[in-house]
Computed example of a mutant assay.
Amino acid sequence: MIGLALVLRDLVQRTLGVKWAAGAVLVGAGLSAFFAPPALVVASATAFLLSEMADLAVYTPLQKKGLVLAVFASSVVGLVIDSAVFLYLAFGSLDYISGQIVGKAWMVLAALPIIHLIRRREIKSMRSVSA
């Protein structure tokens, strides 16, 4: 689900702004504490918070260069950080990082066509407003 969360955070920033996106990250980190088993709460919340903030930091400057590029690049950075931090804090090992990254990357890749359609719709809407 983190792959999808990273994409959704980008869309929140795009529609509502950086402050709302940062607020969503904090709420998400808090929520992860409620849904993770007690032994994994710190690992889950910390990994979510750090990965979402890294995603935010990469997405913000790239969004002007292209929505799909920004979502892809920021999500990749976020999912790698999420995987590494979670595995290290929860298990003290990075043995399964490749599986974590691949699984999360599939969610990001599945979302990219939708992001492309959203961007095309925005462009079309901007053209009709300026016409």
Rank of each mutant, 00 (worst) to 15 (best):
M1D: 11
A5T: 15
A5G: 15
L6H: 15
V7D: 02
L8H: 08
R9K: 13
D10L: 02
L11M: 15
L11E: 13
V12L: 07
V12W: 00
Q13T: 05
G17R: 11
G17V: 03
V18S: 14
K19H: 13
A21D: 01
G23Q: 03
A24D: 00
V25S: 14
V27N: 06
V27I: 15
V27Y: 09
G28N: 04
L31H: 05
S32W: 03
F35L: 12
F35A: 11
A36E: 07
A36R: 11
A36I: 08
A39S: 13
L40D: 13
V41S: 05
S44F: 00
T46W: 01
A47P: 07
F48L: 14
F48P: 04
L49S: 09
L50P: 10
E52S: 15
E52H: 14
E52R: 01
E52T: 08
A54Q: 03
A57V: 07
A57Y: 03
A57L: 13
Y59Q: 07
T60E: 13
P61F: 08
L62H: 08
L62G: 09
L62Q: 10
L62S: 09
G66T: 01
G66M: 02
L67M: 15
A70L: 04
A70N: 04
V71M: 01
F72P: 00
V76F: 08
V77P: 06
V77K: 05
V77G: 05
G78I: 01
L79Y: 06
L79G: 07
S83E: 06
A84C: 09
V85L: 03
L87F: 12
A90N: 09
G92V: 05
S93E: 11
L94Q: 03
L94Y: 04
D95C: 01
Y96N: 12
Y96W: 07
Q100E: 12
Q100W: 14
I101D: 03
I101P: 00
I101G: 05
I101V: 15
G103V: 06
W106H: 11
M107P: 00
V108M: 03
V108L: 09
V108A: 01
L112H: 06
L112V: 06
P113D: 02
I114D: 03
I114V: 15
I114E: 02
I115Q: 06
H116W: 14
H116F: 13
L117G: 15
L117V: 12
R119G: 09
R121I: 10
E122C: 06
E122R: 14
E122Y: 09
I123C: 01
I123V: 09
I123A: 08
M126Q: 12
S128W: 03
S128H: 10
V129W: 05
V129S: 04
V129H: 07
S130H: 10
S130E: 11
S130A: 12
A131I: 11
